[in-house]
C-alpha cells in the first residue's frame, strides 16, 4: 500500500474497513423496523476494534453485514482487499457450536483452505501449524463432541486464522464459555493477535474483555442500533490478563461504564 502515490498525500493510510451511513430495515407485517440506523465506522489496517452495547443494539447484525451474510438496506460497507487477491476478505468466528461436529478438529481448521481449493497436503500442514500454536495438536483427529467447550472455541478461532483473511470478524467468540476458560482464552487471543496483528472487529458483552483486547472500544445504543461513542484504548502492548489490575485500566473502565450503564438501563426500559 505504501507504494501507492495517493497514500503519501494523505495524513492517514486508507482504512481497511469503511462503513458509511449503513441502515438495516426489516419489513415486518406491522411495518418497517429499523435495526441499525445510520451507522458509520472506519477500522484502520491492523487495528483491533471492540464493539460493546446492550442486547438488541444491532452489533451482531452489523457484523453479519460486514461478513456479507446479511444485506444492508442503505449506505455502504467496504473491505479493502490486500496485495494477495486470493486471500479471503473476511472470516468469522461465531459463538460456540459453529465448529462442524461432523469434521475432525484438523478438518475443521483446514475447511476454509479446502473451500478455496488448496491441496490436501498443504492445507493439513497449515492446519497442523495452527493446532500446534494453540496446543491442540494431539487432538487433531478428535471430533468436536470429544473435546471441551474451550477447545472447540480455540478450533473455531484458528479455523478463521488458518484461512488468513484480510479482516477477522469475531461475534462474541467467548460468550458461551465459563469464567475461568474465558480468561485463559482471552490471554491466548492477546498472544496470538500480538503475533499476527490482523485487523479485527470483535463483538462482546463484556466491557473488561473489550478494554483488555481492543485498540478502540465502540459503544452502540439500542432501538434503533446506532453509534454512541468511541474510546481509544491507549494501554501499552503487549498486554496480559494482569493488565486488568492496573489503575489505567480501572480509569478507562469507569469512564466507559458510566455511558454504557446509562444506555443499558435505557434499553431495558424500552424492552419492558
Amino acid at each position: 500500500m505504501a507504494d501507492h502515490g495517493v497514500g503519501i498525500s494523505r495524513p492517514k493510510p486508507a482504512p481497511k474497513i469503511e462503513t458509511r451511513n449503513v441502515c438495516k430495515i426489516y419489513d415486518t407485517v406491522s411495518g418497517p423496523t429499523t435495526v441499525v440506523d445510520d451507522f458509520s465506522l472506519d477500522v484502520a489496517d491492523g487495528e483491533f476494534v471492540c464493539i460493546v452495547g446492550p442486547s438488541g443494539c444491532g452489533k451482531s447484525t452489523y457484523l453479519r453485514m460486514l461478513a456479507g451474510l446479511d444485506t444492508h438496506s442503505s449506505g455502504s460497507i467496504y473491505i479493502r482487499p490486500g496485495d494477495d487477491p486470493t486471500k479471503p476478505l473476511n472470516s468469522v468466528v461465531f459463538q460456540e457450536y459453529a465448529v462442524f461436529p461432523w469434521k475432525t478438529v484438523i478438518e475443521n481448521v483446514a475447511f476454509g483452505l479446502q473451500m478455496r481449493g488448496v491441496g490436501k497436503a498443504e492445507r493439513l500442514q497449515v492446519a497442523d501449524h495452527w493446532l500446534e500454536r494453540v496446543g491442540l495438536r494431539k487432538f487433531a483427529h478428535y471430533y468436536p463432541s470429544e473435546i471441551s467447550g474451550g477447545m472447540k472455541q480455540r478450533v473455531s478461532i484458528i479455523r478463521a486464522l488458518a484461512n488468513d483473511p484480510e479482516v477477522l470478524l469475531m461475534d462474541e467468540p467467548l460468550g458461551a464459555l465459563d469464567a475461568q476458560t474465558r480468561i485463559v482464552l482471552q490471554a491466548e487471543l492477546l498472544r496470538i493477535w500480538q503475533e499476527t496483528r490482523k485487523t479485527v472487529v470483535f463483538i462482546t458483552h463484556s466491557l473488561d474483555e473489550a478494554i483488555l483486547l481492543g485498540d478502540r472500544v465502540v459503544l452502540m445504543a439500542a432501538h434503533p442500533g446506532r453509534l454512541l461513542a468511541s474510546f481509544p484504548i491507549d494501554i501499552a502492548r503487549p498486554r496480559t490478563v494482569e493488565t486488568m489490575n492496573t489503575p489505567q485500566f480501572a480509569e478507562l473502565r469507569g469512564a466507559i461504564w458510566s455511558q454504557l450503564s446509562r444506555e443499558v438501563t435505557r434499553a431495558m426500559e424500552m424492552q419492558a
Binding site: 461478513a67 451474510l69 479471503p88 472470516s91 468469522v92 461465531f94 462442524f100 475447511f111 473451500m115 478455496r116
Partner: peptide, 18 residues
Amino acid sequence: IDPVFLMAGRNYGARGVS
C-alpha cells in the same frame, strides 16, 4: 439445520454442491 452452520459454511467459501 442450525443456521450458524450454514453461515459458517458460506463464510468459508462453500457454495452450491460443496
